[in-house]
Nucleic acid binder design. Structure first.
Length: 208
DNA sequence: CCCTGATTCGC
DNA sequence: GCGAATCAGG
């Protein structure tokens, strides 16, 4: 493969969008990430400034939603939870549309204020969180076991090879993703695949 | 281990 | 110009 105008352009575009060299390489096909990086340098755009109106300077990833676990003044009855601190949406991660521009901001859900139960988080439509009553006791047990050993990784750390099973309440600090090695071709680790993909037969008679 | 970009250097 | 090998780091 050679660097045709088209390919170079796609390279420029993706690079300025913040895509990694390996991602760009995959997209282009026929080249390795090294080739991409090499080209990037030759083009003199190693300094990711490609995008226009981009932020002038000041590194600072800063935005760490690490809202300290509220000191919790026990007695207080009504605390309107003034700051629903959105759970920052994820920058382009997996999924690769041929070359479609895609605004990420998947508006985050403010999460409901009250809800202490260890079940059903303030979930969005995204990940499957089957109600506990439709999971076999054995499976549920193994899953809980696995969750103890999960890597507790953050959204940004997910890759095509990490289990993307969400654990915890997205509205709190205690939220993370399983992160264990995912089954080839599947988005989850073995344990989570078993609860995520249940045959219709086994999920029948779910008493309500 | 997975991944990132940066550099070097023979081709 | 190209990109594999290598380096340095997370």
């Amino acid at each position: 493969m050679s660097w045709t105008d088209e390919r170079v352009e796609l390279l420029k575009k993706m690079w300025s969008e913040g895509q990694s060299a390996s991602q760009i390489a995959k997209e282009l096909g026929g080249v390795t990430r090294n080739a991409v990086i090499g080209k990037v340098h030759r083009l003199g755009l190693s300094n990711r400034a490609g995008a226009e109106g981009a932020a002038p300077e000041a590194e600072a990833p800063a935005a760490k939603p690490v809202v300290e676990p509220t000191p919790a003044p026990e007695p207080v009855a009504a605390r309107p939870e003034p700051a629903p601190e959105p759970v920052r949406a994820a920058p382009a991660q997996p999924v690769r549309p041929a070359a479609a521009p895609r605004p990420e901001p998947v508006a985050a859900a403010p999460a409901t204020p009250a809800m202490r139960r260890p079940v059903v988080p303030a979930g969005q439509p995204l990940p499957p969180q089957p109600s506990l009553n439709e999971i076999s006791p054995e499976t549920l047990a193994s899953v809980r076991e696995v969750e103890k050993r999960s890597r507790k990784i953050s959204l940004m750390e997910l890759t095509e090879r990490t289990c993307k099973w969400p654990i915890g309440d997205p509205a709190t600090d205690n939220f993370y993703f399983c992160g264990l090695p995912s089954q080839p071709g599947k988005p989850y680790c073995e344990a989570h695949v078993s609860v995520a993909f249940q045959p219709m037969s086994t999920r029948r008679d779910r008493r309500r």
